[in-house]
């Protein structure tokens, strides 16, 4: 039994870097659960959708009969944080995806799959994220065959840019990143996500976690 009042954070675990996300969340004191079936999804209060191969995940969402139940939860306002492939799955429009690739249209953006190129073009760089506070150090972003945001709809907030292009965005309860905050050893974006809906994660974590 989970303690009363504490929230269960799901991590979509069909494929990809789900273990690193789970580790970052656990280090912040969150209760976590890997989600592979509709049964796993029940009782989850928020969900992280990790990086990996979006075509693989899209297919497994269907074969695991998870696509529709998850869509209903997202439409119902469950907070979600999608990174890389997770961002592709949450976007309204996907360029250069497979014809049968499905996405949720939960955040009004267009993303170009592998828009920053192949692995030889993958890179790491520092990102300024004003939301982390006026004195915050840059967040180190690791971009792996990353999706590129080519259109941002009305009502979508841009939380960080790289070379003038949006790489961290939010619309209501849906947050997305084209990079991998789970790989940087920095907990601040996970803390920002948890703080956006939960009082049980204290605000002090946002400032402390940089040194974890």
């Amino acid at each position: 039994m989970q303690p009363e009042g504490s929230m269960m954070i799901g991590v979509l675990a069909l494929q990809g870097a789900f273990a690193s996300h789970q580790q970052r969340l656990t280090e912040l004191g969150a209760l976590t659960r890997q989600v592979r079936t509709p049964r796993d999804l029940a009782g989850v209060d928020a969900l992280v959708m990790p990086g990996g191969e979006s075509t693989t995940m899209s297919r497994l969402l269907t074969t695991s009969e998870l696509f529709d139940p998850l869509g209903e939860r997202i439409a119902g306002g469950m907070p979600v944080f999608g990174t890389c492939a997770g961002m592709i799955l949450l976007a309204t429009e996907v360029l250069e995806g497979r014809p049968d690739q499905r996405s949720y249209g939960a955040i009004d953006i267009t993303v170009q799959r592998n828009g920053y190129g192949r692995q030889l073009d993958s890179f790491e760089t520092d990102l300024v994220v004003p939301e982390l506070g006026p004195d915050a150090t840059p967040f180190h972003g690791v971009f792996i065959r990353a999706p590129r945001v080519t259109r941002v709809g009305e009502g979508v907030e841009i939380l960080a840019h790289h070379h003038g292009e949006p790489v961290l965005l939010r619309q209501g309860t849906v947050s997305v990143a084209s990079f991998h905050p789970e790989l940087a050893g920095d907990h601040r974006l996970h803390a920002l996500f948890l703080n956006s809906f939960s009082n049980s994660i204290t605000s002090s974590i946002t400032t402390q976690s940089e040194n974890l």
Partner: peptide
């Protein structure tokens, strides 16, 4: 900001994405 390619974190990053 500087953009670094071919570093060990970037190489290992793709391996991380292939997990599962």
């Amino acid at each position: 900001p500087e953009q670094i390619t071919g570093s060990f974190p970037v190489k290992r990053g793709l391996a991380e994405m292939l997990k599962g």
